[in-house]
């Protein structure tokens, strides 16, 4: 049971507690007592997010804070309030660049980047479309290339990613220069016993 300490609460008819005050703008009225989502996130991430006391250190160090919706502190609040929908549709699940600044600075040792990964994986399992599909398409294409050869073939990665996410002139114009500088290899090699290797990808998400 999670009860934010700073909220005044009143007892709702169902017996659950309705939070009425100190609610950040845009956050819905949530009945505490609905901790299923919190438990799911705890299981998936292994991060003790109940320890968060909203110091916002993660947000102040987040390099993409100005371009995202919910920094880790806010994601944690959403989870604590049981707002599954907002947490799983957050743009931050894609905007996060996995720099681990939040993870390194959290006074309660919460690995924010790992939390984002876990939310992203739950969203995928539940079939929730990503807020920024191009980012997920990149990671999927990257892993597809790894599964094909055991190593990333950068030409394949960029080619297929362009087909999936749309052509991008910067990349197209740079490609010949990259090739001339020996920075674009058409063949990256492959590993042996790929069949056994591909078993590692058997998991639901990959």
């Amino acid at each position: 049971m999670v009860e934010p300490a700073t909220t005044e609460s009143s007892v709702a008819p169902t017996g659950a507690t309705e939070i009425t005050a100190m609610r950040p703008e845009g956050f819905p009225t949530i009945r505490t007592g609905d901790t299923d989502f919190l438990k799911l996130v705890l299981d998936e991430s292994g991060e003790k997010i109940q320890a968060c006391y909203q110091c916002h250190k993660c947000a102040s160090g987040c390099p993409v804070a100005s371009e995202t919706d919910y920094t880790p502190d806010k994601l944690i609040l959403l989870i604590q309030l049981g707002d599954e929908d907002k947490a799983l549709r957050a743009r931050h699940l894609q905007t996060c660049v996995a720099c681990y600044t939040c993870s390194a600075r959290c006074p309660n040792n919460i690995n924010g980047a790992r939390l984002v990964e876990a939310l992203k994986q739950i969203a995928r399992e539940e079939g929730i479309p990503p807020a920024k599909p191009k980012v997920d398409a990149f990671h999927d294409t990257f892993l597809m290339s790894v599964r094909h050869f055991g190593r990333v073939n950068e030409a394949e990665l960029m080619g297929i990613y362009s087909l999936r996410a749309g052509f991008d002139w910067t990349t197209i114009l740079k490609s010949p220069i990259m090739f001339l500088k020996g920075r674009l290899k058409l063949w990256g090699g492959r590993i042996r016993r790929l069949r056994m290797f591909r078993k590692l990808f058997a998991n639901k998400n990959s």
């Binding site: 996995a98 790992r114 990964e117 876990a118 992203k120 994986q121 995928r124 990149f138 990671h139 999927d140 990257f142 892993l143 790894v146 590692l200 990808f201 998991n203 639901k204 998400n205 990959s206």
Partner: peptide, 12 residues
Amino acid sequence: GSTSASKTDHRL
């Protein structure tokens, strides 16, 4: 696996 693997599947 770089960031793509951990972002997609922790086990991978």
